[in-house]
């Protein structure tokens, strides 16, 4: 798979505090905020029917629970490897959204990382970063 460029955010899952406490273990049943995991918009047909990245012109390969992606923060070059544990983000709700760091930009939400994974490549308070995602 060629690297896909887009936006990365983070989400909580598993045992949690506050508003996160109701989020559960994700579509794969394994999601934990402290693990290097992620949500992927095309984790199944049922997932794709919800997230609909194609509506935004983004084509993402079908990758199922446990598949490993590598996400690079285009603001600083930091990279993290994570495995699929949930369905998301809901790309179609933010169609056309663009995040940039200088001239490095990403359009459309293509991946959500757990807090452990996102905080390895960016501050959680940034919330959203341009990224590239690949499989090697």
């Amino acid at each position: 798979m060629a690297a896909v460029t887009g936006e990365v955010s983070w989400f909580c899952c598993g045992s949690a505090w506050g508003p996160c406490a109701s989020t559960g273990r994700g579509a794969c049943g394994t999601c934990t905020s402290g693990n290097f995991q992620h949500a992927w918009p095309n984790a199944s047909q049922a997932c794709l029917d919800i997230t609909r990245p194609h509506v935004c012109g983004t084509s993402l390969a079908r990758r199922t629970c446990g598949f490993v992606h590598y996400t690079t923060n285009l603001c600083n070059g930091a990279r993290v490897g994570t495995s699929i544990a949930d369905c998301g983000p809901q790309t179609d709700l933010f169609c056309g959204e663009r995040a940039c760091c200088g001239s490095s930009c990403g359009t459309n939400r293509i991946i959500d990382l757990t807090p452990a994974a996102y905080s390895a490549i960016a501050s959680l308070s940034t919330g959203l970063r341009p990224c590239s995602v690949d499989t090697v």
């Binding site: 934990t32 290097f36 995991q37 070059g77 490897g81 994570t82 994974a117 905080s119």
Partner: peptide, 23 residues
């Protein structure tokens, strides 16, 4: 801030718990 997060490569196995993270 961004440079700080790029300062050290991540070596944790994908899917595994990160011992350098807590909540």
């Amino acid at each position: 801030p961004e440079a700080a997060f790029a300062a050290e490569p991540v070596k944790i196995e994908p899917g595994a718990p990160d011992p350098n993270f807590a909540e």
